[in-house]
Amino acid sequence: MNKNIRILIAKPGLDGHDRGAKYVARALKDAGYEVIYTGIRQTPEAIVKTAIQEDVDFVGLSLLSGAHNELFPRIVNLLREKGAGDIIVFGGGVIPESDIPSLKEKGIRAIFTPGTPIKDITDFIETVK
């Protein structure tokens, strides 16, 4: 048996549009990963605790409300505070191109905007795992 890659797909904040998150969760399952899905309206604290309890390798955040500049970096920082800065965070959703450089600077390793082929996400996971 090899080490299985575990990924938490989470939706922080108040936006309830979960179709994208569910699509990604299913596609990652089909690619052979173990995906933990926790549903909509999660606080950053709940996401970080879940990531640590589940000992995931990746956290994928989905947000379509525009609060990504606030919430994504907060989750990265909380993970670091809890000694779990090695968990890789990526994000997706309707995120303006102009926001991506500063998100990456704050520790979000990749951002996948609408229309991204799923292969880009699995390639990313395979490269950085």
């Binding site: 926790t38 879940t50 309890q53």
Partner: peptide, 30 residues
């Protein structure tokens, strides 16, 4: 999945209100 080995672990979705409680530890297993 018997084909890919992947899994959707969705049970904790129903228990997520306990996620911030330090005295509750939920672990999903495939």
């Amino acid at each position: 999945s018997p084909f890919t080995g992947g899994a959707i672990l969705g049970d904790r979705l129903r228990m997520q209100k306990h996620a911030v409680d330090d005295a509750v530890f939920i672990r999903s297993m495939a």
